[in-house]
Design a protein around this nucleic acid. Sequence first.
DNA 1: TTGGTAGGTAGGAGATTTCCTACCTATAGT
DNA 2: ACTATAGGTAGGAAATCTCCTACCTACCAA
Lengths: 106, 106
Amino acid sequence: MPHSDEVFTALASPTRRAVLALLLDGPKRVQELAEHFDMRRPSLSEHLKVLREAGLVSERRSGRFRFYSLEPEPLREVADWLTPYERFWREKLTGLRDLLDEEDGL
Amino acid sequence: MPHSDEVFTALASPTRRAVLALLLDGPKRVQELAEHFDMRRPSLSEHLKVLREAGLVSERRSGRFRFYSLEPEPLREVADWLTPYERFWREKLTGLRDLLDEEDGL
DNA sequence: TTGGTAGGTAGGAGATTTCCTACCTATAGT
DNA sequence: ACTATAGGTAGGAAATCTCCTACCTACCAA
């Protein structure tokens, strides 16, 4: 069970958020992930390690390959953390909506 | 208009998340916030600066004091980012994910 | 067994973060 | 005007992050 510290820290990197987004499509090999980033493979490996330790991805070995899969459960901690604030931006949003009806793309 | 990078980065620190939590109660002076942390005031000032630049707090001057208020709107970006993942942990919650697990080895 | 490929680990350079002390500015009260 | 208080800024030390190259292991194929 990952501590939420590790989860928030893992999400702080745009690269790591992009990895998670790629995994929304389904499990991927490291190489397949690496193609999307302008960085050497070992660097990506380290990002994957951070994600693994936060519990946000899991690894399955298959022959020479390792498939990484999304493990979104820790994100629930983020959603839960967000809950008490939700009320506030909703208030702000509805106030704004009267004035800027089309601006907030929702 | 804060970029979501700054928002996620701001949230990566437990201290800064705790500041936001304290501000759920309403605006507070710096000293009042500082009481909750085991750190010198200038260090907290720097955390407040990160939060300000992420648009997550605002400052209002009143005499010698500065009141910090929660500005939760940027958190909506986080909630929005979370949306596509929500479906997945919901599935996991209902146990559906366990059935699909055998299938992700494509 | 030899060679090629997937991907991790080691170690280090440079940037960034996080804390500190020292100092500065602004306001309030006397 | 003088002093005290609130809180920000400057600059630096230590820790951490993020990238790199070099290397290692594991597996597959000939």
